[in-house]
């Protein structure tokens, strides 16, 4: 209860994995870990859907609907009658919200 982050859009097709371990390298939350013939998806719930693993997977073994988990951007898009997923993160803009990392 009160945990909305257990499920996300990350999908891993281990049959396609060539064990290059790029995903382990780029993931900032240790979602993947090394395995014998392919990597293992070990911490699905930690995924923040940044999309780095999918974009850097040379064999499309990873799928994720990447996007910025920013309520401010999504609420603003919804208020303007647009699709919430179209809500662009506006970090850096003068009126925008702000992400934490440099």
């Amino acid at each position: 209860m009160f945990h909305s982050y257990l499920v996300n859009s990350l999908k891993f097709h281990k049959d396609r994995c060539i064990n290059c371990k790029r995903c382990i390298e780029v993931c900032p939350h240790g979602v993947f870990s090394a395995g014998e013939s392919h990597v293992e998806l070990v911490h699905q719930a930690r995924c923040m859907e940044c999309g780095a693993c999918a974009l850097n997977c040379p064999v499309q073994a990873i799928e994720v609907e990447s996007g910025v988990g920013c309520a401010w951007a999504m609420i603003r898009a919804a208020l303007r009658g647009r699709d919430m997923d179209s809500g662009e993160c506006s970090c850096g803009g003068d009126a925008g919200s702000c992400c934490g990392i440099e």
Binding site: S4, Y5, L6, V7, N8, S9, P28, H29, R46, C47, M48, E49, E65, S66, G67, V68, G69, C70, A71, W72, A73, M74, I75, A78, M84, D85, C89, C91, S97, C98, C99, G100, I101
Partner: peptide, 22 residues
């Protein structure tokens, strides 16, 4: 607090959307 999600380095879009509706 909900709006602070965008400033953190760990909230997924799927989860934030769920929070908004909930």
């Amino acid at each position: 607090g909900l709006n602070f999600t965008g400033s953190t380095p760990y909230t997924s879009r799927t989860g934030v959307k769920k929070e908004i509706f909930k």
